[in-house]
Write a protein that binds this DNA or RNA. Structure first.
Lengths: 246, 246
DNA sequence: GAAAATAGTGCCAATTCCTGTCACCATTTG
DNA sequence: CAAATGGTGACAGGAATTGGCACTATTTTC
């Protein structure tokens, strides 16, 4: 019996039976009384709340609120969760968002330090707007998760993004732009890019982007993002989108 | 140097430099070549994708996509994340929500089985509506995370909920109701409860609830929740809320 | 008040597991 | 072929975990 699996077995047993005695636990997991006591201490250090009553009829009791999960997430998954919670908070202060934040903070802390810096830089390129009134979404496509790695690479390495774009009128074209920012106007997302061939900024709706890739060896400088929360109102972009100009 | 911190150091070093040789790694982390090889094996078992090229100019390469985080979350935190992502998806199909779901699925799987069942039952009591047009939120209060444990206990154990309520006109009262459902109409949340003393269903805005507790030993039967997504439109509730009748 | 039951701690020997060394193999590059 | 590199197996020594014991503190029962 491994240390890890023994800890799991102890937590499991404590969860099943309301109150358990140390000797019973020792018998169950096949370890000595002393070892089980050490394990209990380790579990408490890990944050499990285990009450103990001494004397006859005493024993150990696990506070079910303190049961914890140990999930292993990939970086894109963490990032998706971060975006979700951030977007939700922008939609208004939902209940329990503090709790969700606390959870995310823990997840972030578990990442390598340099990865956290990357994430924050990427998040800095993200502008999240207010809830938009419902609009016609009949032609809204789907966004594929495969976008994320390419976007992350391009934003962090300041590389050109190359992708297929289908505009409001259904015309297809292959674009190559310098990614400057991402805008979230639930339920729509936009990429703000500087198009060198047109020498202008362009907005692209994410659901119309496909076959995206970061182009190696095309380092560029970040320009001033033509988008300030309080200067350029989101409503303008939305109006242009509705008019088919995005 | 601990096993754990050595693993971290190796992952970090592999992330920094594109391709690294085992002997260089051994020198860097202050362990022997054999130990580093064992560590690499362990990391691969943990899911890290580490490519290796033998021969001159070879070395190790870490697939950045495979970097993982190992966060330890409490059950309320998991629940808050679940609610966040569910609410966000109801707000429209945001990008990367599939990724967020995948992450949450992993987190859920890491919970004890009976805890998952509880979570699902609790989520079943949750009705998530469409985005509501912006409305006047000047009087919107804040919701405290301390609500969640009491709510969970009450919903799962079918216990009465007792709390202070401040209605639209600012009148305070202490209520005791059978919790039937929760409604999310971003950014507002409502509790649907059966009030025995009034023999009727009542809606309570979450941000007006305080000092909440689940009352022990008051088991009740779930009644038919007077709320069907397609029958009773959310707009009706919103209209009543605006008129100060909630 | 005494006895029994229970959690908890300190100490030390025994055991188990981790680490380093070495020999060796397989593959690629020049 | 030789050099450079990742990878595996065996084994001795060292580090960490475990078990046993004596002991303390508290609560319940008689």
């Amino acid at each position: 019996m491994n240390v890890r699996s023994r800890h799991d077995a102890i937590v499991c047993s404590l969860r099943r039976s309301g109150t358990t005695k140390i000797d019973a636990l020792a018998l169950e997991v096949g370890a000595s009384r002393r070892t089980v006591l050490r394990d209990i201490g380790a579990l408490r250090d890990q944050g499990y709340v285990i009450h103990s009553d001494v004397g006859r009829g005493g024993g150990l009791q696990l506070d079910p609120q303190s049961v914890q999960t140990n999930a292993r997430l990939s970086v894109p998954e963490v990032f998706a969760l971060l975006i979700s919670v951030a977007a939700m908070r922008a939609a208004g202060n939902l209940p329990f968002s503090e709790l969700a934040d606390a959870g995310l903070a823990k997840i972030e802390k578990a990442l390598p330090a340099d990865r956290i810096r990357d994430l924050r830089r990427f998040l800095d390129c993200l502008h999240i707007g207010q809830l938009s009134p419902l609009q016609d979404l009949s032609d809204m496509g789907t966004m594929v998760p495969e976008l994320l790695p390419a976007f992350e690479t391009a934003f962090l390495g300041q590389l050109m993004l190359r992708f297929d774009y289908r505009d409001a009128k259904g015309r297809k074209s292959r674009r190559e732009v310098e990614p400057q920012a991402m805008l979230i106007l639930p339920p729509l997302w936009y990429l703000v890019g500087w198009d060198p061939s047109r020498a202008d900024f362009r907005h692209f709706r994410m659901d119309r982007i496909s076959r995206v890739e970061a182009v190696e060896g095309t380092r560029f400088r970040h320009r001033h993002v033509p988008f300030e929360d309080d200067v350029c109102p989101y409503s303008e972009l939305q109006a242009r989108d509705r008019a088919g100009h995005v």
